[in-house]
Nucleic acid binder design. Structure first.
Length: 274
DNA sequence: ACAGGATCCTGGGGGC
DNA sequence: TGCCCCCAGGATCCTG
């Protein structure tokens, strides 16, 4: 579910209630997430103070004193919230971390595609991102890097946008919305783009993500922010999930195809194959 | 190198 | 009400 705007919203909303607090109690559920949780990690976390909360691509990084990093991925249905301890614990809640002021950090994930992992040190954290080949953040992307990345590949633009090694943070919603904004067909082959079209796409990604963060992300089914409230960018979709509805620019019905293994939405008239 | 499919999971919605 | 099928903000592995 969550792509960069949703993850960024969670990070912004859990940062204030977490930074400076100590983890007082860590309770892990029995069901496994995508990466196995080591029971020993609970002991390490207990009593430790949070020093920072940041984001890298779709990953949440919670920095803890003594050089530990709790890294969280929300998968498709992950929810990461700070709530009052007396709030009822929803089904599919896999982690409850009590804070020293009585609040609770909770991780809920219906499909369990997400993960929580503890890294012992910055080097280990960096190595994990590096071994995955995680690409640069989409904001302030180097123009030449982006042009070259496209010029080098015979893959479709949709496939490139979804590839976290090329650019980190874009997922299915924002790939489709970015391609619409840039007026580029999702099936266009990277190496066929003109430099101008490449630049247009780079700026479209930034524009769409920035706007989506302002709207606190998209809440379609499961997503909620760190404070538990829904986002509203789902009300701004131009093409994602708009199959058959009129294109906001030219009124042509929005098409839906399967591309790079994912549902792909676009305007067959505005987004030319060129 | 790349496309496509399967996999990990659970739940919602539509059709019958 | 039940059943079956398809769908879902992701990542990764395997085959051809």
């Amino acid at each position: 579910m969550p792509e960069l705007p949703e993850v960024e919203t969670v990070v912004r909303e859990i940062r204030a209630p977490l930074v400076g607090r100590r983890f007082a109690r860590v309770r892990a559920g029995k069901l496994a997430l995508r990466k196995p949780w080591q029971p020993a990690w609970a002991k390490i976390l207990t009593g430790s103070r949070v020093t920072a909360v940041t984001r890298r691509g779709k990953w949440i990084v919670i920095e803890i004193e003594r050089n530990r990093y709790l890294v969280v991925h929300l998968g498709m249905t992950g929810q990461f919230t700070v709530t009052h301890a007396d709030a009822p614990i929803a089904a599919h809640t896999h982690f409850v971390i009590g804070l020293d002021n009585g609040a609770e950090l909770r991780y809920r994930d219906v499909r369990r595609f997400g993960s929580l992992t503890l890294y012992a040190g910055r080097a280990e954290l960096d190595a994990s991102f590096e071994s995955a080949g995680l690409g640069p953040e989409p904001f302030g992307l180097d123009r030449k890097y982006w042009r070259d990345s496209l010029a080098r590949t015979a893959r479709s633009l949709k496939a490139v946008l979804l590839d976290q090694r090329v650019v980190a943070g874009v997922g299915n919603i924002y790939a489709d919305e970015s391609l619409f904004r840039a007026k580029l067909h999702p099936a266009l082959i990277g190496k066929t783009l003109t430099p101008a079209a490449s630049d247009r796409l780079r700026k479209a990604i930034e524009g769409v993500l920035t706007f989506a963060i302002e709207r606190r992300g998209s809440s379609i089914r499961d997503y909620i922010g760190g404070s538990g409230e829904r986002g509203s960018f789902q009300n701004e979709f131009k093409v994602y999930g708009q199959t058959g509805k009129p294109c906001p620019r030219c009124k042509t019905p929005i098409s839906r195809i399967r591309l790079a293994g994912r549902s792909t939405h676009f305007c067959p008239k505005c987004q030319r194959v060129e």
